[in-house]
């Protein structure tokens, strides 16, 4: 947990100029891979410029975007926002949580897509779809 806080602070302080505009009051940018045992808790959106490894955890009240492989556990909309989304370059989570929904990948290994995917709640279930930029 302390790791997570440290990550947030340093992420906000060491931003390259071109990325600064990405950060509004409630978005935090994590500029590294989160390894096993590391976590980020944030009241807002979380963007990770790296991977989220198995055993790492992100809990955000808003959306979660991972510009790398998401292999750990993430919870978007943690205070109940069912409109929150999770977007990852490679979506391979151990478990996904959005608001009060929990899903995990199917046991039998299926497809292994090499494109970004988006998870969100549709008609009361968490669905995964190919991400394209005009998704809303």
């Amino acid at each position: 947990m302390t790791n997570g806080i440290a990550a947030q602070n340093s992420a906000i302080n060491n931003l390259p100029v071109e990325l600064e505009e990405l950060v509004d009051d409630n978005t935090v940018l994590v500029q590294r891979t989160l390894r096993s045992g590391q976590s980020v808790y944030h009241d807002g959106n979380v963007v990770v410029l790296g991977d989220v490894n198995p055993g790492a955890e992100i809990v955000a009240t808003g959306n979660i975007v991972v510009m790398g492989a998401l292999r750990g556990v993430v919870h978007a909309g943690a205070k109940g926002d069912a409109n929150a989304v999770i977007l990852a370059f490679r979506l391979r989570p151990t478990q996904l949580r959005i608001a009060n929904h929990i899903t995990r990948p199917p046991e039998e290994e299926i497809s292994d897509p090499d494109y970004p995917e988006l998870a969100r709640i549709k008609n009361g279930v968490v669905t995964i779809e190919t991400f394209n930029s005009n998704f809303k």
Binding site: N3, A6, S36, N53, P54, G55
Partner: peptide, 13 residues
């Protein structure tokens, strides 16, 4: 490998 990943995180910290 999972434990190695944990250790790498702690080393970096």
């Amino acid at each position: 490998v999972r434990d190695a990943d944990r250790i790498i995180g702690l080393l970096e910290a």
